[in-house]
Amino acid sequence: MSSTTTAPKKGFDFKAFLANNGALVGLVILCLALFIATPRFLTGPNLLNIGIQVSTIAVMAFGMTFVIVAAGIDLSVGSVAALSAMGSSYAVTTAGLPDGLSIPIGLAVGALCGWVTGAMSAYGKLPTFIASLAMLTVVRGLTLVISDGRPISTSASVSWLGDDLGPIPMPIIILVLSGLVAAFVLNRTVTGKNAFAVGGNTEAARLSGIPVKRVLVTVFVISGVFAALSGMILAGRLDSAQPTLASGYELDAIAAVVIGGASLSGGVGRISGTLIGALVLAVIRNGLNLLSVSAFWQQVVIGAVIAIAVGFDVLRRKNVKH
């Protein structure tokens, strides 16, 4: 009998793998289905297209992962992306600062917005939902004020973010690099690990001497910086910073994080999962476009996918815990 205690049944590991990587399995199935359905799916140009599509949402969602792991939510990222894109371009094309400062200014704007949201919830005790909802409106308003409601042309360096580097589009390169950085920060640094502790059990974290408020502010700053980067990529691709840029993107970013297996109650989340979540959304959109499904129906499908993906995850968790 003792042999059975040590050697788990064959196929068990495979099942566990499936259970733990539901989103990945879903993505693979999705790709296979599209591969069979249309010859246009698995072509170089189309895959690059998906890569560019996914980059803005994924980069934004990487930052969102930090906030959600810490049991918060950041609804302001779409607006922050717009203000950062606007600010980075405005500083150069209108205010006449050197082009080299453009991207740093954009990132700083994002960090500042994140800091304000984080401080409101950490020190002002506003729920993160409310603090970031307020910022969503405030920041979008500021963007409109600065631009006077009109698009402005991007600085050279922001445009460069939307160009190609050799055969590979810059957004994809930024996607990969920022993913690596995000994963490193989340898993290897004290800040990242503290985010898990705070999200998992705030009181236990506090009683262990973890500076809960500082952690909360930090995750929002991180979210703001990633949102800024995402916004500048988007502006770079369009070669113009528009005041309505990335409007509504916060919901896609949240969806990507949640499809990737993070828990909205905090303490659980992976950057790789978030990337897969963003890919699932992008591939579905792309596939539906290739299959000429109307944009109206696409919304219905995406909503259903979010519900199904999270539903599976809830089932999985129920089976794992005993």
Binding site: R188, T189, V190, T191, K193, N194, F196, A197, G200, N201, E203, A204, A205, L207, S208, G209, I210, G267, V268
Partner: peptide
């Protein structure tokens, strides 16, 4: 409710009080 982060591992729970103090340049001394 006050002592443990239930989703985290045994190692992480034991290590919370020393994680920051033993870190180098913000990196966890894994």
């Amino acid at each position: 409710t006050q002592g443990l982060v239930l989703d985290a591992s045994v190692a992480e729970n034991i290590g919370y009080a020393t994680m920051a103090a033993t870190s180098r340049g913000g990196l966890v001394d894994r």
